[in-house]
Design a protein around this nucleic acid. Structure first.
Lengths: 146, 146
DNA sequence: AGCAGTGTAACTACAGTTGTTACAACCCGG
DNA sequence: CCGGGTTGTAACAACTGTAGTTACACTGCT
């Protein structure tokens, strides 16, 4: 099972917001959907989650959408958490209700838990150390080359 | 989206195989299912994947099931790969077909790819450094305490 | 040959994702 | 103060992957 593409879409949208806007062309959910190549409602749903997490401010009607912080101060981990791809600490699912009458069944959960938690944390630390700015800088750099 | 519980079930099953067997009570898929608390077919499906990965040997009929290696030489990463919870390098899914007419759309995939790959590798490295033996030792230790 | 167990196909039920339509709520400009 | 473009959300469909179950052919020991 893969981690939902909501995460990559969210980073895409935030990159659009971080990069300089074209003059006179407001960045609506419709236009963002055009860049991501999906439906505007999908974008609005994700913007709603980013807003709830305090990463963006969305003004209803024709008010526009803005980052609330500098791209350098937004980590991918925050984005990852914002779109709720996984419940905190629940990346791995462990079969619940193993047989307590069995030695292994009785202790497998706690025996696995520590390792799985560390694996998950290792992944999240990489995201925590990558900022939105790094992503947009990378995009800009690639744009210059090609 | 969570990683399938096939992984934790597989570790459970391998732990059963690694720990000393009760005399005269063969470890059938039926008994394993009893410990995991699921259906024997679910166990046989997972055993099939572990067999394909070369981690266990299953003798049809009443032949029994055995580890092909010492528990100290089986890493959780191998188990993780064996049950195919995720395609290699595909833990994160990235929206395909972003709009190439857009600066961000054109480069978001490659800009994200490096980071996501590193995050995934960080997770896998934790699994790579944990052996089946560590799990069974932990189970045995907990059994002594309680 | 009988039988206990494995291997596997087929089916159901369920949950989460993604895309879509529809529509109320909002607010700015004229 | 009203019209029009936009956001916020509910509702639904299609699809995918998981997990449980039944059924049955196959295997190999005794």
């Amino acid at each position: 099972m893969q981690i939902s593409s909501r995460f990559s879409v969210a980073v895409h949208v935030l990159s659009l917001l971080a990069l300089p806007e074209q003059e006179g062309v407001p960045l609506t959910s419709e236009r963002m959907a055009g860049s991501v190549n999906t439906n505007p409602v999908v974008i609005r749903r994700i913007l709603g989650q980013l807003k709830k997490a305090g990463l963006v401010e969305v003004r209803p009607a024709s008010g526009g959408t803005f980052l609330t912080r500098q791209p350098a101060n937004i980590t991918l981990l925050e984005v990852y958490r914002a779109v709720e791809v996984v419940e905190e600490g629940q990346l791995f699912s462990v079969h619940d209700k193993p047989n307590p009458a069995c030695l292994v069944g009785r202790h497998i959960q706690s025996a696995l838990d520590d390792t799985l938690q560390r694996a998950q944390t290792a992944l999240e630390q990489v995201l925590a150390h990558t900022t939105l700015q790094q992503v947009t800088t990378d995009i800009a750099a690639k744009a210059l080359i090609s």
